[in-house]
């Protein structure tokens, strides 16, 4: 029963697979607000709830790519507003370095992103996801991170 959404939908249109890690206190709530405000964004985006953006290990990001994600986005509280005071500051450094490394390895930099979305920013959440999904659709399927050795 293949339900992998990165497979083409009935229309034949390419549907990317996007994993969004959202911190429980701001961004997940922001996503909830986007929902209750009926602000749509593509179903390509699947949200994983984490207590804080600083819980996201680079391994998770790489694992997602390995398993076929086409884009990975991290959302957390705005710097300075972290529920745990400092978590997102560490996230910022970690992801800055990780993304820089991925870029260094020649992987499309647009496939990864960090956005700060507060619980009040339902509209921003939706806009961010729309934009990210558009970017990933334009990039097409992720091949490089799945297949760094042999390529095609």
């Amino acid at each position: 029963m293949p339900l992998n959404t990165s497979a083409p939908a009935q229309t034949g249109e390419y549907r990317p697979l996007i994993v969004a890690f959202c911190c429980n206190w701001c961004s997940y709530a922001g996503a909830d607000l986007a929902g209750s405000s009926r602000l749509t964004y593509p179903a390509d985006v699947k949200i994983i709830r984490v207590p804080c953006s600083c819980r996201v290990n680079p391994l998770f990001v790489l694992k997602a790519f390995e398993r076929g994600a086409d884009g990975v986005i991290l959302c957390g509280c705005h710097p300075g507003d972290c529920h745990y005071t400092t978590g997102n500051y560490y996230t910022r450094r970690r992801m800055t370095l990780l993304f820089s490394m991925l870029d260094y390895l020649g992987i499309e930099r647009e496939r990864t992103r960090v956005e700060w979305v507060s619980a009040a920013e339902g509209a921003k959440f939706s806009a961010t996801m729309n934009d990210f999904a558009r970017t990933i659709r334009a990039l097409g399927e992720n091949r490089k991170l799945r297949d760094l050795r042999c390529g095609n």
Binding site: V19, I48, R55, F60, Y84
Partner: peptide, 27 residues
């Protein structure tokens, strides 16, 4: 918050309820 889990290089530190394995299983 889990900040420690990512700072830990050996993976000794984990967060109950949001373990490495759980999040990777979700992924």
């Amino acid at each position: 918050c889990g900040a420690c889990t990512v700072a830990c290089p050996s993976g000794a530190m984990d967060l109950k309820g949001f373990t490495n394995q759980q999040i990777m299983a979700e992924v």
